[in-house]
Simulated scan of single mutants.
Amino acid sequence: MKKIVACAFGILLTVAGVVWTLQGLGYLKGSSMTGSSFWALVGPVVAALGVALLYVTFRGQPKR
């Protein structure tokens, strides 16, 4: 159960980061975030955290 929650949260962070980046760069219109350089910088950081969480979740147990 813990692994499923971590996986879902990692995917959510990654998708949100990509969307924020695209909005910050002006590729996705219709939001107050569109064209804001703040979101163009925060988005990749959040996406990287999501990918890191997915990596840690699925890297497996160390062999003994």
Score class of each variant (00 low, 15 high):
57 T>Q: 10
40 A>E: 04
44 P>F: 02
58 F>K: 07
1 M>Y: 04
22 L>C: 11
5 V>P: 00
27 Y>T: 07
33 M>K: 11
44 P>A: 06
58 F>V: 13
55 Y>F: 14
28 L>T: 04
6 A>E: 02
40 A>Q: 08
33 M>N: 04
15 V>N: 01
53 L>K: 00
1 M>K: 04
35 G>Y: 04
36 S>M: 11
18 V>A: 13
24 G>D: 02
21 T>R: 05
46 V>G: 08
55 Y>H: 06
45 V>Q: 06
55 Y>G: 14
45 V>K: 05
35 G>Q: 07
6 A>D: 01
39 W>F: 15
35 G>F: 02
13 L>Y: 01
53 L>W: 02
43 G>Q: 06
15 V>A: 14
42 V>T: 08
15 V>P: 02
21 T>P: 01
22 L>F: 12
12 L>T: 11
39 W>L: 08
46 V>S: 09
14 T>C: 13
30 G>H: 09
29 K>L: 11
56 V>A: 12
18 V>K: 02
50 G>Q: 07
6 A>R: 14
45 V>E: 03
38 F>N: 04
34 T>D: 10
38 F>A: 13
3 K>Q: 11
26 G>V: 05
54 L>V: 11
32 S>E: 10
28 L>Y: 11
22 L>E: 03
48 A>D: 05
12 L>G: 15
25 L>F: 05
45 V>I: 15
51 V>F: 10
24 G>F: 05
55 Y>N: 04
59 R>K: 15
12 L>K: 00
46 V>D: 10
42 V>D: 01
1 M>F: 08
21 T>I: 00
27 Y>M: 13
2 K>H: 06
41 L>M: 12
7 C>G: 09
13 L>F: 07
7 C>W: 02
48 A>G: 13
6 A>F: 10
37 S>Q: 09
39 W>Q: 05
54 L>I: 10
16 A>C: 10
5 V>A: 15
8 A>T: 14
